[in-house]
């Protein structure tokens, strides 16, 4: 169960970290879901074309980034309402993937393509003598080990570099950025592209772990990734903890469904309820007078 939870956590965390960049730059990226879906589809297609996992992940990354650029172009450059743009991108991904799938491979259902390699596992077969540690750290697929440098890198970039500082100021007060002669739009673009990369990569992990593309494989994980940003108090390590909590909840609910015959939906709905509560607490703690956006 814990092993499963860690596997579930990886894509969630990557998408959440990417979304965190966008959120801190003041652009709420509600298109994470669509970007993940596109990433998953592109990953399977490019893995099948090249026979390589690395190319599959690259494909997913590129798909997410392309959608992020579409988001940037209309939402930031053209000053359109970012929520509507995000929604349109989600719909575009949900509508065009079955379409592409049936145009290219003749099916809009499960896409099982030849030459898609198995995701390699690392540290398989090693035992430390502590089953719990084994489950947490050993034998996972490549994507899980990718999350460790990702969290560290995100924390480092956001907190310790001029780029991170400027990106955060873009979200807090773009005027300060303009005052020192910088263009906030460039930081918004960078943040959006990073979130597209994160979500695309997350989607590729979802699909490559299974080795097939399932319709709607992201199953709301893009939205949960948004949840982890708020639950994690907009910090990389917070996102890690939040993603882990959600992954454990999913692991428990999957296990409980098999054993107890109770609907796992109660647990699945929990993160969303927690998010609303966390946001109420957050606004209470900041003690700011309610104001306009």
């Amino acid at each position: 169960m814990i092993y499963y939870a860690i596997e579930v956590m990886a894509p969630l965390l990557l998408a959440g970290l990417g979304g965190l960049f966008a959120e801190l730059a003041g652009v709420l990226n509600i298109a994470l879901e669509g970007m993940m879906l596109a990433g998953a589809f592109a990953a399977i297609v490019s893995a099948s074309l090249t026979g390589s996992i690395a190319a599959g992940m690259l494909g997913g990354l590129i798909a997410g980034t392309v959608l992020a650029y579409l988001f940037y172009f209309v939402g930031i450059r053209m000053r359109a309402n970012i929520f509507i743009v995000g929604l349109a991108i989600n719909l575009l991904a949900a509508g065009s993937i079955p379409f592409l799938s049936s145009a290219m491979y003749g099916t809009k259902g499960v896409l099982r393509l030849p030459r898609v390699p198995r995701m390699p596992g690392f540290f398989v077969g090693i035992e430390t003598g502590f089953p719990l540690l084994d489950q947490i750290f050993l034998g996972h697929s490549f994507g899980v080990y990718l999350t460790v440098p990702a969290v560290l890198l995100a924390g480092l970039v956001l907190q310790r570099t001029p780029f991170g500082l400027r990106l955060r100021s873009t979200g807090k007060n773009p005027e300060t950025l303009r005052a020192v002669g910088l263009n906030p739009d460039r930081y918004r673009r960078a943040a959006l592209l990073i979130s597209g990369m994160g979500a695309g990569l997350a989607g590729s992990l979802l699909a490559l772990r299974l080795g097939v593309y399932l319709p709607n494989v992201s199953a709301g994980r893009g939205w949960i990734a948004l949840v982890t940003i708020y639950l994690g108090y907009k910090r990389p390590f917070g996102v890690l903890i939040a993603a882990l909590c959600f992954a454990l909840a999913e692991g428990v609910s999957v296990a409980a469904q098999g054993v107890l015959q109770i609907p796992g939906t109660i647990l699945l709905g929990l993160p969303y309820i927690l998010t609303v509560l966390a946001m109420i607490a957050y606004s209470a703690m900041r003690r700011v007078a309610p104001s306009d956006d």
Partner: peptide, 19 residues
Amino acid sequence: FRNVHEVVSSIMLNYIAMY
């Protein structure tokens, strides 16, 4: 009363309603 952005809370409420 809590200055929670209606988009974020509504997204959460969508999922809560679904489950």
